[in-house]
């Protein structure tokens, strides 16, 4: 029995609903020898800004129970290098490309969005208004619903590709934020970004991460993420891309039943460089086992 795993988000067809979570997969280059990028629903690239960003001091990462914390600080080579190197690399693959865009100010987001307007290799934009590890921009836009709606509509005015707003879980009411993105004209939302967290190295009386706080990801946050995907997808009509600690096909199915039209694998790519291929296979097996012929049967089914 064959299962149709394809989904459509804002007019873009995905051969299956599995992609990487931005920042855990580079632009696919480093993982291409372990994972056939052609088999993925999309490659979501690491956040890119108008100019190169240095990122935070080290240590930038720490292991935590069933997860990890990071405070990379969106280090990236800037849009010029990204277009020349990363987008050229991705031209050779038959998969969707979603570019994650970051900035300190509205103008910086717009600059990157405009630079990408003419790039046919880019199917969608994901606007990072939820990074907890940079002082200005990032999460500042994603935790205030008025600012979120405003930056969404500004981006939408300039964007030539459909826009996904990536939401932060570090808010009181995720439904309000989902609605604000929708009101601003977002074509889709993705969630959750990492949860703001802290770890202390007690023997050295120091923060485990130089930035003091970091974003928590991995299976530890999965139940929180599933709840937020459920809440957000029931608050808006636009599609939701769900993520947070996905390790298997079963985990992905859980997010889809909660309302996600597609899912992203994040921290688990580090644990297993072939994780996404296994997640795709796992979704297929689940469908075969339970008699699902079309993946749409399970999206938001509960």
């Amino acid at each position: 029995m064959s299962v149709d795993l394809s989904v459509t988000i804002a007019g873009t067809v995905f051969k299956n609903p599995v992609m990487d979570a931005s920042g855990t997969f580079g632009s696919g280059m480093e993982y291409a020898e372990f994972t056939d990028l052609n088999r993925l629903g999309a490659v979501v690239t690491k956040g890119v800004s108008n100019v190169p960003w240095e990122g935070n001091p080290t240590p930038r990462i720490a292991e935590t129970p069933s997860g990890m914390m990071n405070a990379i600080g969106l280090q990236n080579p800037g849009i010029d290098v990204f277009i020349k190197r990363d987008l050229s690399f991705l031209s050779d693959f038959d998969t969707n490309v979603i570019v994650n865009v970051c900035g300190h100010t509205e103008e910086e987001y717009i600059e990157v969005v405009e630079r990408l307007a003419g790039e046919s290799r880019v199917q969608m934009l994901e606007i990072n208004v939820s990074c907890p590890n940079v002082r200005t921009g990032g999460i500042a836009f994603g935790t205030d619903k008025r600012m979120l709606e405003r930056v969404t509509s500004l981006v939408k005015k300039k964007a030539k590709q459909p826009v996904i707003m990536k939401l932060s879980p570090n808010v009181t009411d995720i439904s309000e934020m989902a609605k604000a993105a929708e009101a601003g004209g977002a074509d889709a939302i993705s969630l959750i970004n990492t949860l703001m967290a802290m770890k202390i190295d007690i023997y050295n009386r120091k923060f485990a991460i130089a930035n003091r706080t970091g974003g928590l990801s991995g299976p530890a946050i999965r139940p929180v993420a599933v709840r937020m995907v459920y809440d957000a997808s029931h608050a808006v009509k636009i599609p939701v891309i769900g993520m947070g600690g996905i390790t298997s096909g079963e985990d992905a199915v859980e997010f889809m039943m909660a309302g996600a039209s597609a899912v992203a694998v994040g921290m688990y790519n580090f644990h297993d460089p072939e994780a996404m291929i296994k997640v795709i296979g796992g979704i297929e097996s689940f469908c075969v086992k339970t008699g699902v012929k079309d993946i749409h049967e399970i999206i938001g089914c509960i």
């Binding site: 855990t24 580079g26 690491k46 930038r60 990462i61």
Partner: peptide
């Protein structure tokens, strides 16, 4: 040496 997550150059966790 530095703490690493991916070990393949994707996560940018281990910079100097």
């Amino acid at each position: 040496e530095e703490r690493m997550a991916c070990g393949v150059g994707a996560c940018l966790g281990c910079t100097v």
